[in-house]
Design a protein around this nucleic acid. Structure first.
Lengths: 191, 191
DNA sequence: TATAAACGGAACGAAACGTCTTGTAAATAG
DNA sequence: CTATTTACAAGACGTTTCGTTCCGTTTATA
């Protein structure tokens, strides 16, 4: 069975994807989220309308608003933090601190919207976990390994605790997620 | 300013609320959730249709599907567990175990649907936190106080960790929530 | 008997869904 | 240059749900 991959050595035949429309959709989505929150005002329709793009184009490249959110977040996540160059007793706190600092208002809204979609849509949840959740878990895993000897058995448990707390506070808007809390959490875990 | 409360000493004038329709709506919702998951198949329309009830009636007593879920869950929560009659070192594990055991498939779906609605709808989130989240936090707080001397400063943090982990696993379907995990978590916290 | 409130049923316009059609634009293949 | 192929913007489509508003009826109190 021969499948046509997007090899570099084989340019596609027709009109190439419009990078302008691509960006317009991402920007329009971001704009709508900033303006109306993660609310139901952000739809495939309103995104296409705001972006000045045909609905067909949006549906062609993304299956749902969740897919668009996911791409936006991957873009944001690229401007991220390196780990490993600190004294081991500061690794965890630094990781948590920079993670929480990355949670700007728009990013929070997008994360909430993503989670809402993941809860409702089984297939999207798998994509979400694979593309976002797992990479963050692995990053924290590395930090914990560097940081100190939490028994390997309980490392997954600890990761669930930490990201659980983060999502719990994020989704329900209870408690803070800032540098001070990062320190508190890191200290609590070491103790 | 005089407000007419629902005092016992003052029966209302017109036709009283139909307990039959009341139940029919709750049962229909539960039935739909069991059949189709927390998916978008459960709408105010489909609930009214399934219950054999006018939409007006549903909208009169509940503002959204979330309100209906909330009432169902309050009903379920009434069949709940008492705390305080165990050796202190078993309190936490028992609390967690019975909490997790209460998470039957339908209950999980309802909880997920509730959270999804709480994420999207700011006003509903407040209701959700007030009516469900806070009472569970207080219950766990009592258990932790009985259980052992976790410093009072960090009790809220610990509660966030525990319920955070529970929701994280519940919403993303990662990891188990059963009696064995209850034991593991309780032991991990004591250590 | 009159009044008041809740009821089931059905219709409403508005909005979003996902698909489809139309005509145009931008690339490659021969 | 011409044919082919693919993406594009625009928008029409039938369907569904939304939340509201009628209607006529039922069931209570005054």
């Amino acid at each position: 069975m021969k499948v046509m991959d997007n090899n570099d050595c084989m340019k596609k035949r027709g009109r190439p994807r419009s990078e302008k429309s691509h960006r317009a959709v991402l920007d329009a989505t971001l704009h709508l989220v900033e303006e109306y929150g993660s609310a139901s005002a952000v739809t495939m329709e309103s995104i296409a309308r705001t972006a000045g793009v045909g609905k067909q184009t949006v549906y062609k490249w993304w299956g749902s608003t969740g897919d668009i959110y996911l791409e936006i977040l991957e873009e944001i996540a690229e401007q991220e933090i390196v780990i490993g160059d600190l004294p081991p007793d500061k690794e965890l706190e630094t990781f948590l601190s920079s993670t929480f600092m990355a949670l700007k208002p728009v990013t929070r809204l997008i994360l909430k919207a993503l989670m809402a979609e993941a809860i409702i849509d089984q297939k999207f949840r798998e994509k979400f976990v694979e593309k976002l959740i797992m990479s963050r878990r692995q990053a924290l895993g590395q930090v914990l390994t560097l940081s100190k000897g939490s028994s390997v058995d309980d490392q997954d448990l600890l990761i669930d605790f930490i990201f659980g707390l983060m999502w719990y506070r994020l989704l329900l808007d209870v408690g803070e997620l800032n540098a001070e809390e990062a320190r508190r959490i890191a200290q609590f875990i070491k103790a």
